[in-house]
């Protein structure tokens, strides 16, 4: 099938340094402001108050987090918010040694999916782990939210600084 492959011109860093190829650049100026919506709006309000909440579908009974105003399985509206614990279990985690643009970092960030106590099994949220030796992190580890001081909370997911081992 070699005859069905069209050659392409592979550009190397040197080609740019030596000015052998021309190019144009552009910096987009596109800013966004997202409305939190009904379910997540309430979620953020509760975070500001130092609480985690989910929603319960009256039809299938699932307690969901992040909360939604509809059940994507039953396709019915949900209006029941239920308080959840601010503790949970590490479902999975990573030790991340690079920034998004591939610059190395010494102390790893520890993103995790954390199953929240009080929600249905498997219902997790993404957050970070802290106050823990990276080598000691395990799937199944019990963790608790570390909150910002009340006066610094702003109604955002970052009102929880991270989760630490219980």
């Amino acid at each position: 099938m070699k005859e069905h492959v069209y050659e392409t011109v592979y550009l190397r860093e040197k080609d740019f340094q030596e000015g052998r190829v021309l190019f144009e650049t552009w910096d987009p100026n596109a800013r966004y402001a997202w409305d939190a919506g009904i379910a997540i709006g309430r979620f953020l309000q509760e975070l500001k108050a130092g609480r985690l909440v989910g929603t319960r579908c009256a039809n299938c009974g699932r307690v969901m987090v992040p909360p939604r105003m509809f059940c994507e399985h039953c396709f019915v509206p949900i209006d029941e918010f239920v308080p959840l614990e601010d503790t949970g279990t590490v479902i999975t985690f990573s030790l991340c040694y690079v920034t998004w643009d591939m610059v190395r970092i010494e102390e790893p960030q520890i993103p995790a999916v954390i199953g929240i106590d009080g929600a249905s099994p498997g219902m997790g949220i993404m957050h970070l782990l802290g106050e823990v030796d990276p080598k000691a992190v395990k799937i199944g580890m019990r963790v608790a939210a570390v909150w910002k001081p009340p006066e610094e909370r702003e109604g955002a997911i970052t009102d929880i600084l991270y989760f630490k081992p219980l």
Binding site: I40, T92, C96, W100, Q109, P111, V113, M126, L128, I157
Partner: peptide, 18 residues
């Protein structure tokens, strides 16, 4: 997610690593 995830300054590799 713009509200529940992006403020944590995620890295795309996280999702695959997890």
């Amino acid at each position: 997610d713009h509200t529940t995830e992006r403020p944590l300054k995620p890295n795309l590799l996280w999702i695959f690593a997890l």
